[in-house]
Design a protein around this nucleic acid. Sequence first.
DNA 1: TTGTATGCGTTATCAT
DNA 2: ATGATAACGCATACAA
Lengths: 331, 331
Amino acid sequence: MDQKTSLITLTDVAEAAGVGESTVSRVLRNHGSFSEKTRMRVMEAVERLGYVPNRIAGALASTGTPLVAILVPSLSNIVFADLMSGITRTLEARQRQAVFAVTDYDPEKEEALVAAVLAWRPAAVMLVGLEHSEGTRRMLRASGCRIVELLDIDGEPLDIAVGFSHRAAGRETAARLVAAGRSKIAYVGHDLERDTRSAKRFSGFLEGLAAAGLTLAAREICDAPSSVGAGKAGLAALLARHADLDAVYFSNDDMALGGYFHCLAVGLSVPGDLSLIGFNALDICRHTPQPIASVLTPRIETGQRAAELFLNDAPAQTLDLGFTLIPGGTL
Amino acid sequence: MDQKTSLITLTDVAEAAGVGESTVSRVLRNHGSFSEKTRMRVMEAVERLGYVPNRIAGALASTGTPLVAILVPSLSNIVFADLMSGITRTLEARQRQAVFAVTDYDPEKEEALVAAVLAWRPAAVMLVGLEHSEGTRRMLRASGCRIVELLDIDGEPLDIAVGFSHRAAGRETAARLVAAGRSKIAYVGHDLERDTRSAKRFSGFLEGLAAAGLTLAAREICDAPSSVGAGKAGLAALLARHADLDAVYFSNDDMALGGYFHCLAVGLSVPGDLSLIGFNALDICRHTPQPIASVLTPRIETGQRAAELFLNDAPAQTLDLGFTLIPGGTL
DNA sequence: TTGTATGCGTTATCAT
DNA sequence: ATGATAACGCATACAA
């Protein structure tokens, strides 16, 4: 919590260089005018003293920070790593500093983190999804900073939203299975309460089945975050109850990969006995003996475009980046 | 960069509540003494105005922040997600705020990020590994904040180090393969230049082979970050040149998983034709039809223990948390 | 081109 | 228990 108090300050540098404080400030920020000679003198003093500017004081004086706060639900899902990489890559090029935090898919934790992060007066706050607590929304609106909601556009954004429609993805996945001649279709999913985007996909999937005159043959939903183990166990449990299925939709590729492993382990022929399809088109699922059919989502691009909109001071808007069904050998 | 200037300040709250500024400050931080009546008045005003304390001003006035900066090489490797989750879990319980950044395994980027985060006067900086640029080390030492180096103890730490010996892990892995009766042993790895810990494991592995009177039969090293695809391609390339291998050590589980997928795809019997062993014991590799032999590393615990040492103001030290060879069906 | 003075929103040190 | 007031380290008018 506390700090060595006697760090070098701008005043020290000014004194050492024999110039005024504002001159040092100008040189360091390369703003305003100064002679080359004094620039050298100042830089020399900076080097010699090992001066590190105090951004806290700077931010207070100029009322504004280069900080962008990014709140993601989880880090164990590579999807969010991709998203953050897209964001930071774009932000860094324009001298902004990204600050990450993890909400664990918990709206209350998100609210606490929003409060904590707003106290540092970021220029923008980026969140995943459109569902937030009332307190979160109120604080964000009152903060006066830009708000960017990511990876979902099914709902009412606060300011800028960049992503795609999970509902539509679910619908199209259903249509794809139906087009492949499947009719006894089941779902293996996770944690629909907390992962609202996965819930939207599921709901779209049901709509898609209904549009084809079908209903879901069976479902298996575990009450935990998605994982390979949960997908494997989920499919095993499902097949124990329903031996006659011909296709399974997984809530995402982690789950689908687990299902695929189950098929490999028990010698189920894919897609002969069973078609599998997941969501996100993770790299790993492109390298299984049979690539797993999935839906490619624009994660890095979502991050990039979101950061660009913020940097360019774009007006409030919703940007749909779409998604792509990709075949694979499991369908 | 800029900010709505007219946010509610502590002064506004004081005025609205009809008390002095210092009273508001005391109430908000629950520090010093005040009557219950004024506490109510203040809180009411805070609520009504939607006041969010400005931590920037607070930090400047009290010279000290609750910030802990955490620099990791990558987010696409779940290992670092585990590490960060261990850290934040412990930090949150003690009101510290974690701030993450990603170095991409690039020492120059690490140096730039260290400079950037030090400008915010964090209470501690946590880095992965013991190898840093001279500039990074100089800045950190001069900063006066605690420095914690993570997931490696093979070297000279700056302050606190928590992790285990990669060199020892490599040695023991070699011994394990030898004990299993393997003698034509190869290595499939990634990016030894940048990922110094993986290089240390490899070097320990060679030592382990030498101790058993063996030498490495072959190696295949790709010049990219580790990935399932690289492991798959790497093993394929290796086997094309050397058909007579009986074991392969992979630089980590991502690579090993790719190798395993290759074996599945071409019908190579594991461990009959070939033994496989990886590193990290990722969850996903416990769910493949045959669990992949690996080395379990204390990632979450490293984060927890590191955070605890910092929080408890422990003296400079190196903490070895060890690792565990785990069998699996591929050996 | 350069220096001086004021203010940013808090915390902390004094009085009262 | 409470209220003035002086730092905190820097940016920025403004003056020189």
